[in-house]
């Protein structure tokens, strides 16, 4: 009798355990506000909460660094950190960002120039009181920019009066940092990290299927242009449709053209760039940089970007056409009112 009772318990235990073993993996979700945007974290794996905690502290520190730049600081060796109440030396992180952006500028030109902090502050488009500045004010702000070498090799000093605006790359850079955290943990199966306009799709979903990312409709509403199916990658979207202000009946978008000093005028409504993992540590930053640049450049230069072999593009123009790179899996949402051009 004892043997049979014992046997039946063993069998039952095997059934229970086999039923549970596939569910050891847990899901963790979090939403918070950093980088002047909404960050959402979604991690699947073993103890995803501690991984999410590491990412949050990494993001909080980055936010502090980028906010210091907005507050017109150029000495990053002693930035006040609210959490610890002490000054911290953030120059190595800032140098890292500047070098990577400078490297992209060498390849793609200097149209996205992140030394435009004075110009950003002058327009104040993301603030509560934006205004159209005078021509002379704009000229002065443009004089405060440097070339895209930014600070040379050692970055020990910055030219006087230069202010940085990391807005075009901050969120993509944050996604790079999130990937580094996830890479350092062995037990994460998949993660979706969104920092407003940039997204990190990491790992493999439990059912093994590709990630599906819906591209927001620039005309507003909760509708979407279509769905991108992709393996793990970085995705960034740029457009003038969410952050802008109106003055004298004219719409001014938040992306400033550092050549004219005015908000960019483009015939594109939104640009989404997908950078698959390529072994570098700046894929997120690159997707963010490129989405801004391609949006600024408009349909004239779009063809060359669509042909690139290291990233994919979905671009919507102001006339309702959508253009996509060859070799990417994009399905149009017929209800969006857009058509494939």
């Amino acid at each position: 009798m004892k043997i049979n009772t014992f046997l039946s318990i063993i069998i039952a235990l095997i059934i229970i355990l086999s039923g549970c073993s596939s569910n050891n993996s847990e899901k963790y979700e979090d939403t918070y506000f950093l980088f002047d945007t909404c960050v959402s974290v979604n991690i699947q794996g073993n103890s995803p909460d501690s991984t999410a905690g590491s990412i949050k502290s990494e993001f909080t520190e980055l936010d502090n660094i980028f906010a210091a730049a907005y507050n017109s600081e150029t000495d990053f060796t002693a930035v006040y950190d609210e959490a610890s109440g002490k000054n911290k030396d953030y120059s190595s992180t800032v140098n890292d960002v500047l070098k990577k952006v400078s490297g992209l500028n060498e390849i793609y030109g200097s149209r996205v120039n992140i030394s435009c902090g004075a110009l950003t502050a002058l327009w104040g488009i993301s603030t509560e009181n934006p205004s159209v500045p005078s021509d002379s004010e704009i000229k002065d702000a443009l004089k405060k920019m440097t070339d895209t070498d930014y600070c040379g090799n050692d970055c020990t000093s910055f030219p006087d009066g230069v202010f940085f605006d990391f807005g075009a790359v901050a969120k993509g850079y944050a996604c790079d940092k999130a990937k580094a955290v996830l890479d350092s943990k062995k037990n994460i199966s998949s993660a979706i990290i969104t920092t407003g306009s940039s997204t990190l799709l990491y790992g493999t979903k439990l059912d093994g299927s590709d990630f599906s990312a819906a591209v927001r409709n620039p005309d507003g509403g909760s509708s979407y242009l279509g769905v991108i199916k992709t393996k793990q990658c970085f995705i960034s979207t740029s457009g003038g449709y969410e952050r802008f202000f109106e003055a004298d009946g004219k719409k001014y978008c938040h992306i400033l053209d550092t050549q004219t000093g005015y908000p960019v005028e483009t015939d594109l409504a939104s640009v989404t760039v997908v950078c698959p993992f390529d072994g570098t540590d700046y894929g997120g930053l690159k997707s963010d940089f490129l989405s801004t640049l391609i949006y600024m450049d408009g349909t004239d230069k779009l063809e060359s970007y669509l042909d690139a072999d290291d990233f994919f593009v979905v671009a919507a123009d102001v006339n309702g056409n959508i253009y996509t790179s060859k070799g990417m899996d994009f399905t149009l949402n017929e209800e969006s009112g857009y058509r494939l051009g």
Binding site: T31, C38, T199, K205, S212, A213, A214, R216, Y224, V227
Partner: peptide
């Protein structure tokens, strides 16, 4: 205002994508 509204769906049938970008 630091406000987010989201929908928690117990059925996956209506979900056609993982994330908005």
């Amino acid at each position: 205002k630091h406000v987010v509204i989201k929908i928690e769906n117990n059925t996956n049938s209506n979900v056609s994508f993982d994330v908005m970008v």
